[in-house]
């Protein structure tokens, strides 16, 4: 019988074998690179902690040596609920506490948003904010990762619970705990407000009050 590539059985067999070969190749590649990717992710997370604690500027890309040097100022303390509290000190000797950061998360407009929020030691105002992960629309909600937005939180006074912070749209922020939402990304901005207000309620320094 002559070879026929359009034979139904052959086509199905060919597709199955091709899929298996491709899957095997990708799995092998993934297995090899997974530890590297995990390591890179952990690095990136450290940078986010440093950003939230104000030790690194938003958008700066410190190299590995710089990250290690600065991260020595961070103390990781296990929190009651299984999360980790990141305490930032002014120097590596860890004497003067400058901020305490905690990871908080919640749903954005399209995706889960994970934030790192740092408070001043007295728990009275936000020291800094960093975005760990988000999948909002690029160019709209995705702009919550931009320094222009994140820098507004540095030094923001906390209001009375449960409205710790207000991210306002269509009006001018007039209270000390309010900032402007991102134009064109009101929903994502509001989501950030909800995540912050719910998250801050679980903070050790604010929860004590």
């Amino acid at each position: 019988m002559p070879f026929d590539k359009d034979n139904r059985l052959f086509m199905v067999g060919f597709l199955v074998i091709a899929s298996l070969v491709v899957t095997a190749a990708l799995s092998a590649l993934y297995a090899v690179t997974e530890p590297i990717i995990e390591q890179q992710k952990a690095r990136l997370f450290q940078v986010r902690v440093l950003e939230a604690c104000g030790l690194v500027d938003h958008g700066a890309e410190p190299d590995d040596g710089e990250i290690d040097r600065l991260y020595a100022r961070i103390e990781e303390v296990p929190h009651d609920d299984g999360r980790t509290l990141y305490r930032a000190y002014s120097s590596e000797r860890r004497e003067e506490l400058i901020a305490e950061a905690l990871e908080i998360s919640g749903s954005g407009l399209w995706s889960e948003i994970r934030l790192l929020v740092a408070l001043t030691p007295d728990g009275g105002s936000i020291h800094g904010l960093a975005v760990v992960e988000q999948g909002e629309t690029p160019g709209l909600g995705g702009r919550i990762t931009e320094p222009e937005f994140l820098e507004k939180f540095a030094g923001l006074e906390l209001g009375a619970p449960p409205e710790y912070v207000g991210i306002v749209a269509y009006e001018t922020p007039d209270a000390p705990n309010e900032i402007n939402a991102i134009s064109g990304a009101t929903q994502t901005s509001k989501a950030v407000q909800v995540i912050l207000n719910e998250g801050l309620a679980t903070f050790p320094t604010t929860a004590q009050e």
């Binding site: 052959f10 597709l15 590649l29």
Partner: peptide, 30 residues
């Protein structure tokens, strides 16, 4: 490559190479 499965075959290979690129970028230039 049979006529009727050719699109599936192209997509399979293209997708595989794109995933490789994606993994490589994530691993070395995050």
């Amino acid at each position: 490559t049979g006529k009727r499965v050719r699109m599936a075959v192209y997509t399979l290979f293209i997708a595989a190479f794109v995933i490789m690129v994606d993994i490589a970028l994530k691993a070395w230039v995050p």
